[in-house]
Design a protein around this nucleic acid. Structure first.
Lengths: 464, 464
DNA sequence: CGATTTGTGTGTATACATTTG
DNA sequence: TCAAATGTATACACACAAATC
């Protein structure tokens, strides 16, 4: 028993010695889970150290390790060597961002759509596809990884973005998310570690939970993730992969600088990380940057997988993304693709293909650029202090002073008539003191609605 | 050291004591994996018992257990208490069934398509969808789990199949396989056990590997899986789930009898199993069986999930399946759906919806029935000894005498010009002495090609 | 900066369950 | 039917690594 008076505080959790049935670790784990779900152990509570609880229960401390581990894998706990084991903030809660359950009428600055008014430009091509003679050939099981013509259009499009590949090393999948599922399923095993930005894509956080992968938050600056920090983490703990959105990180809108890309690539090579490049925003950068260098994956061609969705650049509702990777990953990825998708809808990919081949894609992108420019101008006028990050981003990252929990802030804004997402949703690991809101500029029906929403937001922030 | 002379045979695997680095179990596992992949340990080889190898290496035998376990999770080994540990047949090889890599020209009796000539009946509806005013509404992020009208059509269709549900408890997903991925990801954890027929859906076997789930093969008879056997397994080892295709099991074509359904349901209730009912063949049974009782999930409504794909009944290329389940699973399934799919293509589901609403689906199904009847008659005429199972099945299960490994048989038939799949591909666990071939009747371009293929097959079998 | 706290990784002991003969 | 063979589950000991003060 420790003699330090600080430790005389009662243990935060005292499981009942009597009710412990014989598979001790299982019995303990389920008791712990129940107490967390019942709210007896509120989020943030520090659990007793393994050795202390073991003393109390008179069992070996590694048995506690096992019980804690089970709850950790369920996302209920969060352990840190040296510090202790803590109940996860929002233990049983989800950060999933989706339109589901959004009955409430409000101005949506939360979900990032893609200026849906441009969808009218897709319609003529879709109708043309429906009239074509090839239509019937789209309705079979053939070509699970994409029809040759669809791959060709993808190769052409990726080439425009600076990635050069061939039909053997590209596949069509049902959207970025589907591509990520395929990569995570095929290339990682439960318990594997993947490096991410401290604030990262919310759906990736959820996928990592689903597939029992550990995300390792790496700090960074305005140039992107810190290569030194990444190397330090790799040094001490083996890390298997890294996920980045180098063109325009969601949610921070940071574009990784050319110098930083080189540094990061060097670390990726040194530690043989599997590099997932989610380049859904490439089109926003390829055409406006004078010294555009192309995807980061070019720096580590044999260790990288390039995922390029079309939902932001072309059309949200057509579920198509291109997956390109080196020879190393070809076999496992294709195998996972066959087992997870059987095949991607050829109808959607035919429409995307014809949009590319016909050149209609340039009109769509030009229209989106113009809408994004106007929306960003509007945002900059209202929040001049927050001019930073990608100039044409479909969303913005707004620092806020308010220190209340994210859910509270979101709910307060909902009652005022706007939906936004707080940085807590994108957070991986420990919170930094600076909080943010992610503000979508691409979801409102028109500019007037956006202005109204941003006005409400500005009032709220001023009143804080 | 054992004294029995039988054990004086040299150990089948003698890892090098010298090259064993300090995390012994990891070092051992990778050495073992390498030797299997190099072919030094051919499929079927019995590895040394854990204790014997431990003796030889002078370490504790549970360290061997760990090393073997790692390889088992990779699908390289297969251990059975009392019998020993064996190298998996086709250890490094995949059983994935897909059109990929099928350059070779041949008559395809392998992959089960769905009489693709009926796709012409889909075209007019597809073209009508393209002309409709609602088209633009299909192109946004809205309704990730299916648009209200699409759900309504699904409810109507499932009702016809005997399943009654409502918009809150149905979701549209991108095909059966996608539905399975969602269920397996959302409701099970690595290491969980799922009961299946000894011969089961090949893609499920691969998905189980991908998600580190253990499939427990349960024996059965002509009525379907044995309830007693299932109960016995549940008794001794906790099993979390069960996967069945009760209408017409792939590959065996067995339809589970009404009595057996009741027995199995009782066991499912007793052991609180999560029941996945893959009812892709429901349409084949609902309309032809005079005493059709509806899906099995009706017997355990709160423990079951009903997955009903449209690729066999309507059109292979449109990737749509309906997922229906009780309140218990609603939240985790929806969450997984949002994270895995973001959304299902509304374009595909609109076409399926209009096929249902317009009644065109009945024409398609009637045509498929007629084609299936003709194909089955043709098969029965050539293989009268194999008349069994579902009378309208899109594939048949042909017992063969030949005892050569499955790959060899498949390759021999390929050189004769036909592709079929051997029962080894569908096997889960230990092989039974009786081998089979699965013969697709729904993939050839026409009846003449099917007849030719079956003729080649009959010649081969006669010559054995 | 070094000692202490605290979680993790690896090897081991033992009881148990299943299959086989 | 039982004993031997053989894999599995559970608890433990100890060395190590990371964080903190």
């Amino acid at each position: 028993m420790p003699v330090n008076s600080f430790n005389d505080y009662p243990m935060t959790w005292k499981p009942d010695r009597q009710t412990l049935k014989r598979p001790i670790y299982l019995s303990l784990a389920s008791q712990l889970e129940q107490d967390i779900r019942l709210g007896l152990l509120p989020p943030g509570t520090k659990l007793p150290p393994q050795r202390e609880l073991a003393d109390f229960l008179d069992i070996n401390f590694t048995t506690i390790t096992r019980a804690y581990k089970i709850c950790e894998l369920k996302g209920l706990l969060h352990a840190r060597t040296g510090s202790g084991t803590f109940v996860t903030p929002q233990a049983a809660q989800t950060v999933t961002i989706s339109l589901a359950g959004m009955q409430q009428e409000c101005i949506d600055l939360g979900l990032v759509a893609s200026y849906e008014e441009t969808n009218t430009l897709t319609l003529p091509i879709l109708r043309q596809v429906a009239r074509s003679q090839r239509l019937e050939s789209l309705l079979t099981y053939a070509c699970p990884d994409g029809m040759p013509a669809h791959k060709q259009a993808g190769i052409y499009w990726l080439q425009h973005l600076g990635l050069h590949t061939d039909p053997e090393h590209i596949a069509l999948v049902s959207g970025t998310q589907n591509g990520l599922v395929i990569c995570l399923s095929a290339l990682f095993s439960p318990g594997d570690r993947i490096a991410v930005d401290r604030y990262t894509y919310a759906n990736l956080i959820e996928l990592a939970k689903l597939y029992h992968l550990q995300l390792i938050p790496i700090d960074g600056d305005a140039q992107g993730m810190s290569a030194a920090s990444l190397a330090a983490h790799c040094q001490l703990h083996p890390i298997q992969g890294i996920y980045l959105m180098p063109s325009c990180s969601n949610p921070t809108t940071i574009r990784i600088s050319t110098a930083r890309r080189e540094e990061l690539a060097e670390v990726i090579r040194r530690y043989r990380l599997i590099f997932l490049e989610d380049d859904i925003h490439a089109f926003l950068t390829a055409d406006i940057l004078p010294d555009y260098q192309g995807p980061m994956v070019n720096l580590v061609p044999e260790q990288g997988i390039y995922i390029c969705g079309t939902s932001k650049s072309i059309c949200s509702g057509l579920r198509v993304a291109y997956l390109a990777g080196g020879e190393t990953f070809r076999e496992p990825l294709l195998k996972a693709l066959f087992n997870i998708n059987v095949k991607t809808s050829a109808l959607d990919s035919e429409v995307i293909t014809q949009l590319i081949r016909s050149g209609q894609i340039w009109k769509i992108i030009a229209r989106k650029f113009s809408l994004a420019q106007t929306a960003n101008d509007c945002f900059n006028a209202i929040f001049p202090q927050a001019v930073q990050g990608h100039p044409l981003s479909f969303f913005r990252w707004l620092p806020i002073a308010c220190q209340q929990p994210g859910i509270i802030v979101e709910q307060q804004l909902l009652t005022k008539g706007i939906r936004v997402y707080h940085s807590d949703r994108f957070l991986c690991g420990n919170a930094a003191p600076q909080k943010y809101l992610r503000i979508s500029l691409a979801t409102t029906a028109d500019l007037a609605e956006l202005k109204k929403g941003l006005g409400i937001l500005a009032d709220y922030i001023a009143s804080e």
